[in-house]
Design a protein around this nucleic acid. Structure first.
Lengths: 295, 295
DNA sequence: ATATCTCGTATTGTCATTCAATACGATGAT
DNA sequence: ATCATCGTATTGAATGACAATACGAGATAT
């Protein structure tokens, strides 16, 4: 803090506080902090001690203590009584997987993804947009793939991945530009497009072609193609994606064999949406005070 | 929760409040309530309005408003601006899947589960215990299975499922009895064992055999077998499980073809645990104030 | 067309709950 | 042996969560 501003004591900040979003009195900070504890864990940080959690999440020791205690009590964290290490408990799986069960899109898309996999023998993904990122929400892994599939739930930047580009290409210009601007545009490879105008051009081409092709912009040696799934208002709600190694595929082969399947799949999923825009009007009558069995 | 129960005015509860667990001053109620919002959603409640969330979670309207606002702001909930319906956002997948990436057991077990699947052509599951429930943490689906796999993350009662029984059978008696007692022992079928002594007998038999066989106690027409994965201290930390329809399998066939694979798999996973009890002592030196890249 | 009901949203005063500083004992490194 | 760091528990204080309330919109019934 500089010198106290020479204004008389009772100076109230003249700026009008917005009182919206996180500043709204409706925002519960404790919930946000508690959830931040979850994000402290990843594949390189599997077991954390209290102080580490505090450091990683930016909470002080007391706060970390309270939130880990709470999450442990609720069964979301395990604690090794000897080493005092915290780990995620399997119960957190419930959180994530209810999403897969509640997302109509995943449910409707799955048969088409399987069909596309059968026709191409390659991995087929479905992704959705989450801010400036894409998130894998469904996946049919290629047969040869041995390792188990933990790609679901992974998020990658939208601007330099095929699914992201396919979705950005089909949304209003100002919206895609806004996402591109807000993205942390890193050059993952020397082919990564980071310039805003160049991105807009890439979007235009994808829009013209009906699909996006991204070659080695995120991982070297890999070509990724994606087509958007459009809703009734022609807005992208997801993208079908296939990524193949350049060692096995050429551009020509991709355009001839993969792209047709890709686009048919995306369109079939979009059509399957049929008339239901969002959800059928389940209840038209008075709300009978919903009760639910505990488990 | 807030309102004190309508006790007579100045009456201070004479019982010594334990000040532990949920009554501890370390327990953050707001976090618990916020997480309760997630559990309001399931496959039959995919889109909920504010009032429904309030009713299902037991929160009052104001609380539901605050927590949905917060979760929406954080990106965990989507809100249809027209219908005002809330849905889970794909971001919750991140929560669930970090578990799969951080669980050493899942990582180590996967190759053996794949191997077991190859040898039997049947679905192979890995489950862990969570209180009185089992939770599916890994799964290699059978080839014929068409539907996409949303079983991961599902929890079922331990007392009447093969994985649960396999794990209960190999833990100290008082511990398995405690779990059985705390379980809500429903007779899902007319073969379901709900009596505590009968359960103890079933555990004894499973302990003797080395695996548990549960026939039609949870779903009719299905036989489920499971073997425990024991840690260095011979305590069960998980169970390998296979469930097959009686239409294709007899008891004899199961014992001859499936059980050997099952037990070998479970033991191989246990052995793979090797020397590392919990986690290698990653750092022996001073903690260098962990910093982490934001994404 | 009007009245009634329910819902979602926004506001506010109050106080319980969260907060963060602190203290203590244990453990391990120097 | 000494010091540092960690996990745990406690407590006073005030911040931030709370819940009651009010209002407008939309739907339904009269």
């Amino acid at each position: 803090m500089r010198h106290a501003s020479p204004q008389p004591a009772a100076a109230v900040p003249p700026v009008r506080t917005p009182r919206v979003g996180r500043d709204s009195p409706l925002f519960v900070g404790s919930l946000e902090k508690g959830l931040r504890v979850f994000s402290a864990f990843d594949d390189t940080h599997r077991a954390l001690r209290l102080t580490e959690i505090a450091a990683v999440t930016g909470l002080d020791k007391s706060a970390a203590q309270r939130f880990t205690h709470t999450l442990h009590e609720l069964g979301y964290l395990r604690k090794d009584p000897k080493t005092k290490h915290y780990r995620l408990a399997p119960k957190v799986l419930e959180l994530g997987f209810t999403y897969l069960r509640t997302d109509n899109l995943v449910e409707r898309a799955t048969p088409y993804l399987l069909e596309a996999h059968k026709r191409t023998e390659e991995t087929v993904n479905l992704t959705e947009l989450d801010g400036t990122d894409i998130i894998y929400v469904a996946r049919v892994p290629s047969r040869h793939q041995i390792t188990f599939d933990v790609v679901l739930g992974t998020s990658l930047p939208a601007y330099c991945t095929a699914p992201g580009r396919a979705m950005l290409a089909f949304m209003p210009d100002e919206q895609s530009r806004s996402i591109a601007e807000r993205s942390n545009r890193i050059a993952y490879t020397d082919k990564t497009i980071t310039d805003l105008n160049a991105l807009a051009a890439a979007h235009a081409r994808a829009r013209r072609d009906g699909y996006a092709l991204v070659s080695e912009e995120f991982s070297p040696g890999e070509i990724s193609i994606a087509a958007p799934v459009l809703d009734f208002a022609r807005q992208p709600i997801a993208a079908v994606n296939m990524a193949v190694p350049m060692s096995r595929w050429t551009l020509q082969m991709i355009e001839r064999k993969l792209v047709p399947v890709l686009m048919e799949t995306a369109q079939a999923i979009a059509r399957s949406e049929g008339g239901t825009t969002d959800l059928p009007p389940l209840r038209r009558t008075r709300l009978p005070q919903v009760k639910r069995a505990s488990r």
